[in-house]
Computed example of a mutant assay.
Amino acid sequence: MRSGGRSDPVAALIRAATHADAAAVGAIYDHYVRETVVTFEETEVGANAMATRVADVQSRGLPWLVVECDGHLAGYAYAGPWKARSAYRHTVESTIYLAPGHTGRGLGLPLYRALLDALRACGTHAVIGGISLPNAASIALHEKVGFRPIGRLVEVGRKFDRWIDVGYWQLLL
């Protein structure tokens, strides 16, 4: 799928992740582990662990997509099970990350829309997005694709010596 950016169009290709993408996906994610509270992981993951994660998601019949821009992997989005119990099987939790230097270029919206289209195609009913707060950009992206806020958990994470709230957004497909 080809998509464009906002005011300065960016040629992008959105496709399913492959094993060969694991190192680039891991590098993007590890930046967020090291530098931000966007993820609550505190130890870098690396290529091998990321390859296992991608394979696990895809083995469940769920999408893991990447976006390429100018020949480089610029971000990824995927959905994993919300909870393990069988009654939750039609609900997933979505995740999206863009590489540093690729945020604000109009890549997130088409990537998230492609993820939601793939989730519709595989019979998903509800999508949950968890956002470490504050995070105005992530909130705006989720709401732009139709998510609505459903709750806030106060001080449930601790990273970089501070307490972090998590907000939850939901989209019914």
Rank of each mutant, 00 (worst) to 15 (best):
R2I: 13
G4V: 12
S7L: 12
D8G: 02
P9G: 10
V10N: 09
A11G: 07
I14R: 00
R15T: 14
R15N: 11
T18R: 15
H19Y: 05
H19I: 09
D21F: 00
D21I: 00
A23H: 12
A24K: 00
I28L: 13
D30F: 07
D30T: 03
V33S: 03
T36M: 05
V37C: 07
T39P: 00
E42D: 08
E44K: 03
G46L: 05
G46Y: 06
M50K: 06
R53W: 09
V57D: 04
Q58C: 07
Q58V: 09
Q58I: 07
S59D: 09
R60N: 09
G61L: 14
W64Q: 02
W64C: 10
L65M: 09
L65E: 06
V67G: 02
H72P: 00
H72T: 13
A74L: 09
G75N: 14
A77D: 03
A77C: 05
A79D: 04
P81L: 12
P81W: 12
W82N: 12
A84M: 04
R89S: 13
H90Q: 10
T91L: 07
P100I: 11
G101I: 08
H102Y: 15
H102T: 05
H102M: 11
T103L: 06
T103D: 04
T103V: 15
T103S: 09
R113V: 01
R113N: 08
R113L: 11
L116K: 05
L116S: 08
D117L: 06
D117R: 04
L119H: 06
R120L: 08
G123S: 11
T124L: 02
T124F: 03
V127Y: 03
I128T: 00
I128Y: 02
G129F: 10
I131A: 01
L133F: 01
P134E: 12
A137S: 14
I139G: 06
I139Y: 00
L141T: 01
K144S: 14
V145S: 00
V145W: 00
F147P: 02
F147W: 08
G151A: 11
L153K: 13
V156Y: 10
G157M: 06
K159I: 13
D161Q: 08
R162Q: 13
D165M: 12
Y168N: 05
W169Q: 11
L171C: 14
